[in-house]
Amino acid sequence: MGLLNKLDDPYYGGGIILGTLEDVLNWGRSKSDWYLQFGLACCAIEFMAVNASHFDFMRFGCIPRTSPRQADFMIVSGTVTMKMAERIKTLYEQMAEPRYVISMGSCANCGGPYWEHGYHVLKGVDRVIPVDVYVPGCPPRPEALEEGMIKLQKMINEQAIFNKRKRLREAEEKEKSVSDVVLSQN
């Protein structure tokens, strides 16, 4: 943690942090991410295992939230069907910005084992919402999801807050990644 190392600097004495305000804010944001709690399929069971004793997801500062309005990011864990895709889009839109998405498992990445004959399976959640981190595997090992979480934290750390032009460009690029699919009305 770069900030804490700066506290040890012998020349300036203790207690002085040199850095930009952006760094401090991003540090705080990346270390206390709350996620939207919902499971879709088999990957959700692995996700439960990540939350439980052996892997302890909370040490990343992640606390489950049941309401999208209190969540910072969401983990799409499992198969997204056409019927569920609309709900996921709604949930994503209800989250307050800045918001992030981790797509967990092959199903959420690209359709997984159901890519060919799954007439009711959405081939990748990135068709309806922008995804920041993809975690491959069917199901991904808990360690893989933790790696994904670290990637997300790194990403948050590098984000622009005060540079408006850069911030807008980042947001625009993110939205562009979503291909428009027409969901059936059900």
Binding site: L40, K83, P113
Partner: peptide, 26 residues
């Protein structure tokens, strides 16, 4: 119900007998 309908029977029609086993898993 139907939020997790993953077309099990459709897959079985298109897979050989051993290939169905992973779908049975799921």
């Amino acid at each position: 119900i139907g939020y997790l309908h993953r077309c099990f029977e459709k897959h079985c029609e298109n897979m050989t007998y051993p290939q169905v086993i992973p779908y049975v898993d799921r």
